[in-house]
Design a protein around this nucleic acid. Structure first.
Lengths: 235, 235
DNA sequence: GCTTAAAACATATCGCCGTTATGTAATACT
DNA sequence: AGTATTACATAACGGCGATATGTTTTAAGC
């Protein structure tokens, strides 16, 4: 009375292929037939393993939130919490730009075969706000931020950065008010609106930009994996 | 060498029906067959009049931007430009919540049969920013805002409000940090980040809320219609 | 070792979808 | 009047998600 157990590579292969198709060719490339072809399987595999396309998409969305969380946790806590906060914003944007189609699915875009998020899915998204809340608390403790509602501050950061990123992904931000320029201004503005002094905020924002290479852009690459001990490498 | 000219009611009827289906049943209800049934026509009508579903969707998106523009232009210019600015934000949000599915299509959401915006479509969106830019200029002239880049300020407003609205539409904002609370905080924060004093900004934001009923919530209703009379020229 | 239940598929089919090919009727210009 | 042009209707094509059903494989119980 036990299952066939079958090819153990089928299920993760489907997730990998689906994620790749979504990333490289967009939402409309995600079809049961395409997946069956690429995985050398049948369309039924999607249903036995995930209960349908929605289940598969939900799996990928979970992976998307995991990537976001990984980006945010790679931001270090320094003696300049406002710079840390700005870097959290940069990490958020970096993750979104690195996974644009996935990000669109996570936050309401592209319906994808009638897929819609559950309340549990959304809780994944809100959970990542914990990083920002903690950072905001430290901003209050050092006196840089004014009032004392770190959760509200975190929500403001989230809304503003999320809005900028979606406009950027929708190609709404063009020169001379391109995404980079708007983003830098947005970061400084957010710190100021939370109570920081303009010049101090501007300094921390610039400071955070210099930490991008070490704490954000290296997230999915090489030493982020702890399984290979001695392989520090290239540019 | 002239067309059949056919039933002149077919084309506008299709747009109306499509807009209603999108609003009431969401993106997946928009199909050529469904439209043909509701309009007592055939699926070909969509192709002769709009070149396909994309053309129809584009027509609806234009209407969506027109509605947004109508909302924004209903905000009056008073001696408190910061309150005007806050009211522009409220009008933007009000329009999005009144047309959630349409708004999602306008800003990158729901793919809708491979539909994607053209650069001209996006220009419609950016055009509505003109209202905000003018208002920001007046905020500078009265000394309420600090630096002098009204376009940049407008982009920050847009990003932040747009982000909050999309999170709200995606059900990401729940109590105790629900959309209403985050929105009020966001408005005040935006004014402060642009240079206004905290207490003055808070006052103007509250003031703008009292103008909602007269200048925003009455947009599509009754006396808003001043349109030109129809020309009964055909048979 | 054999039986048997159950999971993992394969195959075929259904009812949608957008799109296109083709036919037809109606118009307005020459 | 003739004809080109447009607005449809009808039907078909390929692709989609989903399901029904058959087939193979596995492992537990005897």
């Amino acid at each position: 009375m036990s299952p066939r157990r079958a090819d153990p590579r089928t299920r993760p292969a489907l997730v990998d292929i689906a994620a790749r198709l979504l990333a490289e060719e967009g939402p409309q490339a995600l079809s049961t037939r395409r997946l069956a072809t690429e995985a050398d399987s049948s369309t039924m595999a999607v249903y036995t393993h995930f209960g349908g396309m929605s289940g598969l998409v939900r799996e990928i969305v979970h992976e998307g939130f995991a990537r976001l969380q990984r980006h945010l946790t790679h931001v270090r806590q320094t003696e300049d919490p406002v710079a840390d906060m700005a870097l959290l914003g940069r990490a958020y944007r970096h993750n979104a730009l690195a996974n644009p189609n996935l990000y669109a699915v996570m936050f309401g875009g592209s319906s994808l075969a009638g897929f819609s998020l559950t309340e549990e899915d959304r809780q994944h998204g809100r959970y990542t706000l914990g990083n920002v809340v903690k950072c905001a608390t430290r901003c209050f403790e050092t006196g840089r931020f004014r009032a004392d509602d770190p959760e509200l501050v975190a929500h403001q950061m989230w809304s503003a950065i999320h809005g900028l990123v979606t406009l950027e992904l929708g190609d709404y931000l063009i020169a001379p008010y391109d995404a980079d320029r708007c983003f830098e201004a947005q970061l400084t503005g957010l710190m100021v609106s939370s109570g920081d002094a303009l010049d101090a905020a501007a300094r921390s924002v610039v400071l955070s930009r210099e930490r991008m290479r070490d704490e954000v852009e290296t997230v999915g690459t090489a030493e982020d994996r702890q399984e290979s001990p001695d392989d520090p490498q290239e540019e």
